[in-house]
């Protein structure tokens, strides 16, 4: 029997941030500044969430002139369900640490 691994505080923080902007596409640096997570912590979390299907990503369709298109992220329905199933304590802790 496989047991679901408990989400780390950083993972919950990212999920909460994405859930707060549910329906909106956010880029990596915006998530980083909003959550206070450094890129070295943020990207492994984003990669894991993407692989688990808790977030979806796409390239920016119309980037500012002279700038390259960025990778955008949005929480999925599965991600919202996963966050809802996460302990309230964890969510409140992650919110308090921000």
């Amino acid at each position: 029997m496989t047991r679901q691994r408990k989400a780390s505080a950083q993972t919950v923080t990212v999920l909460v941030e994405l859930a707060n902007n549910s329906g909106q596409w956010l880029h990596g640096y915006a998530i980083s500044t909003a959550t206070g997570l450094k890129s070295g912590t943020l990207y492994p979390v984003l990669m894991r969430l993407k692989e688990s299907g808790y977030l979806e990503s796409r390239w920016e369709a119309s980037p500012p002139a002279g700038r390259p298109p960025r990778h955008l992220y949005r929480i999925t329905a599965a991600g919202l369900r996963y966050l809802a199933a996460t302990d309230d304590d964890q969510v409140s802790t992650s919110a308090a640490t921000r």
């Binding site: 880029h27 990596g28 640096y29 890129s39 990207y43 984003l46 990669m47 990503s57 700038r67 390259p68 298109p69 960025r70 990778h71």
Partner: peptide, 11 residues
């Protein structure tokens, strides 16, 4: 993912 990280740098 490497491309995604690099693109953010320009912003």
């Amino acid at each position: 993912w490497a491309t995604a990280m690099t693109r953010e740098f320009d912003y």
